[in-house]
Design a protein around this nucleic acid. Structure first.
Lengths: 217, 217, 217, 217
DNA sequence: CATGAATGAGTGTTCATTCAT
DNA sequence: CATGAATGAACACTCATTCAT
């Protein structure tokens, strides 16, 4: 009946332990691609190579699946990032640019970034989730950025700007990129597509220049 | 039967002719707040003070209603903006800041900006609409910004940066603000809310400083 | 598309006001016949001559439909009965027999008595309903019977037996008849069927004789 | 089969042979409490301490389990009862009261009486079972009672009433008690609970008095 | 034109049943 | 034999859409 799978070894080889992961991956893809409501649970199950009923063995409801997708992709990248930032040796200007690029490479460019689009799109339908996302993802990220800016100011590298706003000057383009990538991006003629790394690089340089005390190009 | 709304001034004023407009307005609110799928047409009709059946008299389907909402709110602010920009007298730095602020005040801060959130959220389910939105809204807006930047370069005010990327440095924070306002914003504790105008102002100054050839504030 | 109805006059003739009643009647039949779980809402709707969706226009859920069926059939027969009992002129012995027979004729023999079977069968799945049934149906009924017995005792007709238990001696056979009618009854070969009225009559006479002070056959 | 119920001392004792019995016992409890449909086979298995799959090793389907539960609990108490009745020495009046009380103590008060509730509740969904129950349980029981009544008539103790109806006057309260115990009983405030033995005793005395030829207690 | 009762295709969820291990 | 992961048919419920009035 079912084994039209392309490359399934033995069907029981892939064990219970793998199922949640496979389902979460399939769900992430579909939720990001089509939105929460337009994604049917059966589709998710089928893409994960199981039947509809099996999905409910692992996630008690569609909503729980959704929440799990979000939670699952809230990698501790942030925590890891904090450690690396602490060890960073170069100038604060370089740190800012490095952080932005790393954020993009490690999160923005990955499938997981679809989560951000998803959460922003569905925030009002899942307020708890939005809250969770803010405290678990956004706040820690902001802390990292704020510290980097503070470092620059403390070291006499940056002017004492309004810190909280400057944080947004750094994060906004990144989140915008993610939104764009998962929404308008695919509709864009290839020549008009934004080159994320180039954009981040130039944006970082503009900001850093704008933040810097003295001129030295 | 005939809408005895809470605070409608002139009953007879609100009549047939306005129906589509009232429906579109109600639909905009709800689509923006809850997304396309989570919005029920009956809710839209009720908020517009008509019955469900009446809605289908003006819009043959929910999808058509959605498209009409988007098309209807694509104001020609851009066209008007172009004229004003052409007449702008001050420095290009001032122009950039002025443009960003105006964009926010005239669009970002209004309900119409919900369209941007809507289109980004639902782009993958309505690719044609996304396309339409890009050519009708985004491109013209980008043109305006690009011209302003070009003006600054031509006048020796700005360094010759990658123009297309710089456009995004200007637009990204604005679009981010709009997304934020319509998604995470309402979930945010009031003290952590972003002050849009302050943010735009500082961001514009940082960018302009970053773009400028020499230092002389 | 649908009008394969056998004898529907004009389809809109049967108006909204009739729907709840028709649905409740259909639901009573099916719930009694097959039990709560085995009854599909679509079946109920179809038997009432409407579509599945229509049912949910009037009852928000299957459970609510069930509760409505029970409540709807809790006729105020009891209240009415109380009045008639108060006016009863004959002996208490005659009153007891008359009450039992009336209970049967007005309730036990009607379709509504299926409710009793239903409630007893599903009591543990719908505790609130069981409670409701006890206070609204059983208790008032018991009060009536208790009063009749007390009257007999007060008037020197009956011996002073344990009142509460005697009430059950009167009610138990009635409720048993109802249960039987809606469960084993239909499976019974016709010759073995219980004749309710004859049974009630003889049972009442036996009880009354048993209750009476003196002998007078 | 051998009852190592609730607090099984020797683990190894509880083994293969007992499986069906434990399953039947668990199933009886649950079927009686929640009805056939509302009982999940997994629950039954869990309560019996085995896995869902194991249940199907012993009973090919839920329906078969149900039938087995009913058949299994059709104890031959009746056969045994018949013997005791035959040896009964006292008056027929005493015999009637004794039989009712014994029926209650040996069957009505035990878990097995749940079967009666079950069969009555589900009779219309399992007509064959209802039939089976009638011929195997009800008829023999009725025979016993009928014989006792006939004995009383033959011995000049009772008046020649309609025998078949009198049988129901005796059985109805017993079956009612059983239904009540398994349905409304648990919902009843404790003070309103029926005391079965007191009720049976008084009911038997009322009936016997009603049946008796002369008065002389 | 406007209504709102009616529809029915579509979706989330449950649960008896199977079967590879 | 026992397990429990997997299945899929079945059902409650929703909601865009229609249409008689």
């Amino acid at each position: 009946m079912n084994p039209l799978d392309t490359a399934a070894p033995h069907k029981r080889e892939r064990r219970k332990q793998d199922r949640p992961g496979e389902l979460l991956e399939a769900a992430l893809d579909l939720f990001v691609e089509k939105g929460y409501a337009a994604t049917r649970v059966e589709e998710v199950a089928l893409r994960a190579g199981v039947s509809k009923g099996t999905l409910f063995l692992y996630f008690p409801s569609k909503e729980d699946l959704f929440k799990a997708v979000v939670r699952d992709n809230i990698v501790e990248t942030v925590a890891q990032g904090a450690a690396e930032v602490a060890q960073f040796q170069g100038s604060s200007a370089a740190l800012i640019e490095w952080m932005m690029l790393q954020w993009w490479l490690r999160y923005g460019a990955t499938k997981a970034s679809g989560i951000s689009k998803l959460v922003m799109s569905e925030a009002s339908n899942f307020p708890e989730l939005a809250q969770f996302y803010r405290t678990e993802v956004i706040e820690p990220g902001h802390d990292l950025v704020r510290n980097a800016l503070q470092r620059g100011i403390d070291q006499g590298e940056f002017r004492p700007v309004a810190l909280e706003l400057a944080v947004h000057s750094i994060m906004a383009p990144l989140l915008f990129l993610v939104m764009w990538k998962h929404s308008m991006g695919p509709c864009c003629p290839s020549q008009e597509r934004i080159d994320p790394e180039a954009f981040i690089s130039q944006h970082a340089q503009l900001l850093v220049r704008g933040l810097s005390i003295a001129e030295s190009p």
